[in-house]
């Protein structure tokens, strides 16, 4: 039991300085959260684009999830809304995916 407590404590410690992707709620063992980042007055269109940024152990972080880049890649000129999906696994691997919708 003592070792289990130590294990959980170590996981908390490592996750706090490990891989992290922004999320409205925090789960130090596991996070799988979807949310909305932005809504505009434009109507829902037929186009969608996405991009992903990832982090390994909080040491290596890569990716371009800027709305501008995603809109350019999906040929979206009028954005209706922006969603995201965040995943964290034990602070070892984290991903942040952004979805841009529009026309």
């Amino acid at each position: 039991m003592k070792k289990l407590v130590y294990g959980v404590f170590a996981a908390v410690l490592f996750s706090s300085c490990g891989a992290y992707a922004p999320s409205p709620v925090t789960g130090f063992l596991f996070t799988d959260v979807k949310g909305n980042a932005m809504v505009t007055s434009n109507s829902l269109g037929s186009k969608v684009g996405s991009a992903e940024a990832s982090s390994i152990l909080g040491i290596i972080g890569t990716g371009d999830v800027s709305v501008q880049t995603i809109a350019k890649n999906a040929n979206i000129s009028k954005i209706s809304h922006v969603d995201y999906h965040t995943k964290n696994i034990l602070g070892i691997y984290a991903t942040h995916t952004v979805f841009v919708y529009g026309q």
């Binding site: 039991m1 070792k3 289990l4 130590y6 294990g7 063992l29 596991f30 696994i89 034990l90």
Partner: peptide, 13 residues
């Protein structure tokens, strides 16, 4: 026990 729980967790992930 600690490794078993961790293993179980990682498998579920």
């Amino acid at each position: 026990p600690a490794f078993f729980v961790l293993g179980l967790f990682l498998t579920s992930m």
